[in-house]
């Protein structure tokens, strides 16, 4: 599905920064891949190129047999619209628009008529378990709920793959784990998922872990025993439960943040 060969990305004019150096990478349909590496390793750049947000300086990128690396901005926009679903660390939902309107967004740019858009949006909102929150605006939703709206938005256009950049970075551990359960389920249904993270434990949910350093792939290994996201969530819930029943005053730490108390680092655009 995704086929990168000799991909390089160089930034800057006077002082050149080599973000990516001759990357070769293939990702098949239905794979669950984690991209790891310290900051500056080039993982975000690679992700942007795979997601067609950016063009490589050199090399060829074949997506479903089409050469993406030579497309112009508008062609890239259309490829993004049809092929990729993005999930961001900061959710990037539109404020003053309902969850349902936010989810519709990719379909608007595809020219899908209104009633059909609403039907599809409600369908994916149901899939992420937010049917009754559809008419709420982002500031009325918890961080975990906002991220699930964002996932619904990524899914609504039936893309070929999901790209998630630190999707749990702004969430508490339980909401984060709920998101991981969702990814796992979607992957089981056949959706290719690519995660960018620096969190080892999050990365270990994936079936394949790719590590980058200084713009090069330093390891690309299959994960023989991926973490079971559902079991992990169960474990976190239990921990919270015991902490709460032990009467510790900090019980809230492990619980999903309630609506209206969204994390200030993320939030509506």
């Amino acid at each position: 599905m995704i086929e990168l060969s000799g991909i390089s990305k160089v930034y800057g004019i006077d002082r050149l920064v080599h973000a990516l150096r001759r990357i070769d990478l293939k990702v098949g349909a239905g794979e669950y891949v984690a991209l790891m590496g310290p900051s500056g390793s080039g993982k975000s750049t690679l992700m942007n190129i795979i997601g067609c947000l950016d063009r490589p300086t050199a090399g060829t990128y074949l997506l479903e047999g089409g050469t993406v690396s030579t497309m112009d901005d508008d062609q890239l926009a259309q490829v993004r619209n049809r092929m990729a679903g993005f999930v961001f660390q900061t959710f990037n939902l539109l404020a003053r628009q309902t969850a349902e309107r936010n989810v519709e967004l990719p379909l608007i740019y595809r020219g899908v008529p209104g009633p059909e858009r609403q039907r599809l949006a409600m369908e994916v909102l149901e899939r992420v378990g937010l049917t009754e929150w559809a008419m709420h605006q982002p500031n009325q939703l918890s961080g975990g709920q906002q991220q699930r709206v964002a996932i619904a938005r990524a899914l609504v256009g039936r893309p070929r793959f999901l790209l998630a950049d630190e999707p749990t970075g702004n969430l508490d551990s339980r909401s984060g784990q709920e998101v991981m359960v969702l990814f796992e389920e979607l992957n089981r249904e056949g959706m290719a998922v690519m995660l960018v993270t620096h969190d080892e434990r999050i990365a270990h949910h994936a079936g394949r872990i790719i590590k980058l350093l200084d713009g090069r792939v330093v390891s690309d290994e299959l994960n023989p025993a991926p973490l079971d996201a559902t079991a992990e969530l169960e474990r976190i819930r239990e921990q919270a439960h015991t902490a709460a029943s032990a009467g510790a005053g900090t019980a809230a730490a492990g619980m999903a943040d309630p609506p209206g108390m969204a994390d200030t680092r993320g939030g509506p655009v």
Partner: peptide
């Protein structure tokens, strides 16, 4: 003010003329 909104719209498929 709406730079991020514009970025998001572009990410989900908005073209320049949109």
């Amino acid at each position: 003010e709406r730079t991020r909104e514009i970025g998001l719209r572009k990410a989900v498929g908005a073209r320049r003329r949109d």
